[in-house]
Design a protein around this nucleic acid. Structure first.
Length: 493
RNA sequence: GGGCCGGUAGCUCAGAGGUAGAGCAAAUGACUCUUAAUCAUUAGGUCGAGGGUUCGAAUCCCUCCCGGCUCACCA
């Protein structure tokens, strides 16, 4: 489908033609800025401290966001990554070629300027145009300068426009980078080794999720996009890398909403000789480190709430908490129907839940999660919900597992890793059985290759998976995962 | 998947049966310190798509597409 060529585009294409006729390359490569817009402001400060009116000539560049023609003077605003500065071209400081070029400028064009920095009578820091160079002609108009770009669909589909028109969006991209940087630094300072494990996997194991399926021609086999990094990282532990982590993309073929994108980023780490208590400390320190380094405080706003990340976080026993909040003790409800009835009796809609683990999950989401606003660890989960976690020493029906919740959102999942290969095999086999029994619900999958690894001996290990996108949402006070994933998944038009 | 809300000029929005509107952006002109510049003039539309009702539909009805919120599902 050819986009309609309207008058604005016509006019710009005409200007492009004129540039070519004049022998001016509209897309040259030979301009190197010496000063970005921020450097220009700093240079002006220095210049004024020396009691000078103008600096030496500098080279600066950016995208034109406004043109104000005042007869024989023209003001041009340019925007670069660092910010914004105004250019002033006056007829008596520029040659005819530059005058002609200015006639061909449009909002959206990239230009380079050479000239001194000074301050106008209205006190505006300004680069005087001694010479101007077209760096890239734009032929489509930008969103309007004052109201900007608001249409959410356009913001997501054409994020580059969002980045130009809404400065906050660019800051989210940069702050997300800072968060990941601090995260990586924190892990490396603890001595963790960063690795990459396969994204294309023969068995989508290590979690409970519906996978994306794909196909490799040369191998003539189906492959899946990973739903977790867990099992490969544990193979690393088996191999003797004692502290290991991976920051990477996971793919889950499930619903999309403000907390879920089909591809999302996690940090998973595994540490030999650690248990889930050690991991808990690591996680709260990690969040605290990142929040403090970004915001200079442990207390930050999220929506209506003020979140305090200062360790230690609240630790809540799952079973006790469920008894308090719902009156249900799951240890007395090992029968699926009994649990279902009890949940139904307290007003929970259980029509769509099939398995015991599915019911428990619903019970936790309904009765516990919404109240977990301040960073909190829910501790000790039923065995049936956690096929990869080690049994508690005191109770074989409970595993050493915790999940971290903030603002009602799950942000991490961790356990003392199951390293008993016999028990692990049984748990996988049980998952496979449950899959047959409840084909509608997702289960973990038996990964024989991983079991063989475990059979060679994995040291006692503590592991965790942290959702980076949700972490960024919380720290940057964003209500939707689509605001922190630059290109969220949308239906194609 | 259900419910609610939305899609009108490049952008932001009005219009709710009777000639398709405004601001910004664009074009032309005036103006050598403006910064949402100002002033004058001009141009710009498959009103998300398709069907229906009507003398007449952006507007009412039906189907579909896209998005947002929410519930369900999912971790």
């Amino acid at each position: 489908m050819e986009p309609e060529i309207n008058a604005i585009i016509q006019s710009r294409l005409k200007k492009l033609e004129i540039l070519n006729e004049k022998g001016i390359d509209p897309y040259p490569t030979d301009f190197k800025p010496t000063h970005n817009t921020m450097d220009c402001l700093n240079l002006l400060d220095e210049t004024e401290k020396k009691d000078l009116e103008k600096s030496n000539d500098i080279h600066s560049a950016g995208r034109i966001t406004a043109i104000r023609k005042m007869g024989k003077a023209v003001f041009i605003d340019i925007l670069d990554e660092a910010g914004k500065i105004q250019l002033l071209a006056r007829n008596n400081t520029i040659d005819d070629a530059t005058k002609e070029l200015i006639e061909l400028l449009d909002i959206g064009d990239w230009v380079g300027v050479i000239g001194p920095v000074f301050r106008t009578r209205r006190n505006e820091p300004t680069v005087q145009v001694n010479s101007l160079k077209m760096l890239a002609k734009s032929i489509k108009p930008l969103p309007e300068k004052w109201h900007g770009l608001k249409n959410v669909e356009t913001r997501y589909r054409q994020r580059y426009l969002d980045l130009i028109a809404n400065r906050d969006v660019l800051n989210i991209v940069k702050q997300r980078d800072s968060i990941v940087f601090e995260l990586r630094k924190f892990m490396k300072e603890l001595g963790f080794v960063e690795v990459d494990t396969p994204i294309l996997v023969p068995i989508p194991a290590g979690g409970m999720a519906h996978p994306f399926k794909t196909y490799h021609n040369a191998l003539d086999r189906e492959l899946y996009l990973r739903i977790a990094t867990e099992l490969y990282l544990k193979r690393m532990i088996v191999g003797g890398i004692e502290k290991v982590f991976e920051i990477g993309r996971l793919f889950r073929n499930e619903g999309i909403d403000s907390n879920h994108n089909p591809e999302f980023t996690t940090m998973e780490s595994y540490e030999a000789y650690a248990d889930y208590n050690d991991v808990m400390e690591m996680v709260e320190n990690l969040f605290a480190h990142i929040v403090f380094n970004l915001k200079g405080t442990y207390e930050i706003p999220y929506g209506e709430n003020k979140l305090n990340f200062k360790p230690p976080w609240k630790r809540i026993n799952l079973r006790q908490s469920l008894i308090e909040k719902s009156g249900i003790d799951y240890e007395e409800c090992s029968d699926l129907e009994v649990l279902k009835d009890k949940m139904s009796n307290i007003g929970i809609d259980v029509r769509n839940q099939l398995s015991w683990a599915g019911l428990m999950d619903k019970l936790i989401s309904e009765k516990l999660e919404p109240d977990l606003i301040q960073p909190t660890f829910l501790i000790d989960y039923p065995l049936e919900m956690s096929p990869l976690a080690k049994r508690s020493k005191d109770n074989p029906n409970i595993v050493e597992r915790f999940e971290g919740f903030i603002a009602g959102m799950e942000v991490c999942n961790a356990f003392t890793e199951l390293n008993d290969p016999v028990d692990q095999r049984t748990r996988f086999e049980n998952q496979e059985k449950l899959r047959e029994e409840f084909p509608e619900e997702e289960r973990d999958r038996l990964d024989e290759d991983f079991l063989v690894a475990l059979e060679h001996g994995m040291p006692p290990t503590g592991g965790v998976g942290i959702g980076i996108d949700r972490m960024v949402m919380l720290i940057l006070n964003q209500p939707s995962i689509r605001e922190v994933i630059t290109f969220p998944q949308l239906r194609s038009l």
